[in-house]
Design a protein around this nucleic acid. Structure first.
Lengths: 195, 195
DNA sequence: ACACAAACTTAACACTGTTAAGATAGAATT
DNA sequence: AATTCTATCTTAACAGTGTTAAGTTTGTGT
């Protein structure tokens, strides 16, 4: 059953092999055929599990969103920064540590797709922690901003900074601690504005 | 000379036809062959003017950067907003009006390239107006931030908002005036933080 | 034991980027 | 004015891509 015609759980294998290729060859090297070959399966086998390449990419992205959400949740432990800034550090760090995956998640490839419900949901789960903290901040001190507006502002700066950094548009320190301060510092405007 | 073997200025034609395709078929539909066909020329002709597809894309992006800079310069006329917010409106509006081009300019395709000097320069020219206004703001009221940090913050929020909007991650009003207020409002945190 | 359906293979299609080799024609040189 | 030169373009080919149709295999339910 293992080494024969029916693979067993080819779907999961294809996903993990895809991420593998993504990390060391980039999205350009991620062809359906390459994934199939790496999974030790015929060229057309993936089409039994994904309608087309876009659906495969979407599935990878969904895994990415779940991973990002997990990273954000773990940021509660970091104590030296404001909560908003911790989330920012978590978000940007994820982008830096998963460049290719992050690009895929927010890149053109998927943006042009009509996203599935699961995709939309996984994406929204990453928005949630940010929104929660922003509304807490707004409750403390009153400033004519709506929660929605302030959250969008926060998400924008965090997301924008991520992209500028992974695209090398902005210089970035090498030391880990300096990096955290760099990110916190750039996102501090949010705390400043909402307090 | 016109209707014969030698085209005359094929390079420019290829660039404009590329943008044409980009706008109505998206980057996915932009193949070297398609551009060549639309320019009425053989499949391999483009390779006399661009070393490879990436170089063609880069040339398109450079035109994009120059266009973006021009848009930013024109934003001086808008008077009801703070200068920073006018620039933000210019930046985001450009992204919304040139979705495909904007995606190409900041997308993965070029980010993985070693950019040419001309590319870097054109890109930097878009950073400049933002940086200028931020330093003016910082001069007025003192707040421990460096010009570099504040500019990065500003660029991040403006760039991030652009991407979230063109990717449909955030709802956006349809009315033109409301759109401008929407953008200004989301980027107002910068003014708030630096004053 | 048999039928069924899901998972896989093989083979083919049209398309892609890219290159090598040759054709053309305008510019430079004699 | 004839000739060479060189950039520009064409034709033809290669390997690689996404995708589909048709057929094989195999575990599952009857």
């Amino acid at each position: 059953m293992k080494n024969s015609y029916h693979h067993g759980n080819l779907r999961d294998t294809l996903l993990s092999k895809s991420i593998e290729i993504l990390n060391d060859k980039g999205l350009k090297g991620l062809s359906v055929r390459a994934v199939a070959k790496l999974a030790g399966v015929s060229e057309a086998a993936p089409y039994s599990h994904f309608k087309n390449k876009d659906k495969l990419l979407e599935a990878i992205a969904i895994e990415g969103y779940e991973k990002l959400r997990q990273s954000l949740d773990e940021m509660t432990e970091l104590t030296r920064f404001e909560m908003i800034e911790r989330l920012a550090i978590g978000y940007v760090s994820f982008a830096l540590e998963n460049v290719q995956l992050f690009r895929l998640m927010f890149g053109r490839e998927l943006a042009e797709l009509t996203v599935s419900e699961r995709h939309r949901e996984a994406s929204a789960m990453c928005y949630e922690p940010l929104s929660l903290e922003v509304s807490k901040l707004l409750d403390n001190k009153q400033s004519g901003l709506t929660v929605e507006a302030a959250t969008t502002s926060t998400w924008s700066i965090v997301h924008g900074l991520s992209i500028l950094l992974i695209d090398g548009k902005v210089p970035f320190p090498t030391d880990r601690q300096e990096q955290q301060h760099f990110i916190a510092n750039r996102c501090h405007v949010i705390t400043l504005a909402l307090s």
